[in-house]
Simulated scan of single mutants.
Amino acid sequence: MGALAVAGCGGRPTTHHKPGTSHQEATGGNGRLLATKDSTGHRLREVPADGAPVVRFEARPDSEGGWNVHLLVERFRFTPESTGGAALPGRGHARLLVDGREAARAYGPWVHVPARTGARTLTARLLADDHTVWAVAGRPVEATLPLGADAPSATTPGTGAPRTTPAAPPGGRTLTIAISGNSVQPPPSRVELKKGERLTLQVTSDRADTLHVHGYDRETELPPGRQATLTLTADRTGLFEVETHESGLVLTQLVVR
Rank of each mutant, 00 (worst) to 15 (best):
T132A: 13
E46I: 08
E74Q: 14
M1R: 13
L193Q: 06
T21C: 01
A7V: 15
S22W: 02
V113G: 14
G84I: 07
E241D: 15
V55P: 01
L175M: 07
V69C: 02
T244C: 08
A3C: 09
G171W: 03
R32F: 08
T244A: 03
F57Y: 08
T174I: 06
L34G: 04
H93C: 07
V133D: 11
R139Y: 02
Q24N: 10
T144Q: 07
V111H: 03
R12I: 04
A115Q: 15
A234I: 12
D62L: 06
N68Y: 04
K37C: 08
L71Q: 04
W67V: 10
G31A: 06
L175C: 03
G181K: 05
G108H: 14
R125P: 01
D99N: 06
A106R: 11
I177G: 03
E192G: 14
R95Q: 14
V55G: 01
T21N: 00
G138M: 00
P114T: 01
R75Q: 15
L44M: 05
E25R: 00
D235C: 10
T83W: 01
T164W: 06
E25I: 09
L222W: 01
D209H: 10
H131P: 13
G225S: 03
D99W: 01
V141L: 11
R190L: 08
L88W: 00
R32D: 12
D217C: 08
V98I: 03
R101C: 05
Q253K: 10
T231M: 07
D130V: 00
L127M: 06
Q185M: 11
E246Y: 12
Y107H: 14
V69F: 08
V255T: 15
A234R: 10
G171R: 08
V47N: 05
C9W: 09
A149P: 00
G148K: 09
G138Y: 03
T159Q: 13
T155A: 12
H42V: 05
T204P: 12
G11A: 13
G8K: 13
K195V: 15
P187V: 03
H16R: 04
P187I: 02
E46L: 06
T117A: 14
D62P: 10
G65W: 04
D99M: 02
R173K: 11
L201V: 14
L147C: 11
S39P: 00
H16T: 01
N30Y: 00
A86T: 01
A167K: 08
A228P: 12
E74H: 14
G225D: 07
P166K: 07
H23W: 02
P140N: 11
W67R: 10
A143C: 03
Q202N: 15
L251G: 07
S183T: 14
G29K: 05
L230W: 09
A119P: 01
T200F: 05
A59N: 07
G171L: 07
G92K: 04
W134F: 09
T40C: 13
T159W: 00
A228M: 12
T229Y: 04
D129A: 15
G118F: 11
R173P: 01
L122T: 13
S247R: 13
A49H: 05
Q24E: 07
A208N: 12
K194L: 05
A137R: 06
K18E: 11
S39L: 09
L254H: 02
D129C: 13
R60V: 13
G10N: 08
R95E: 14
A119D: 02
T204L: 15
G66Q: 02
K195I: 09
P61Y: 04
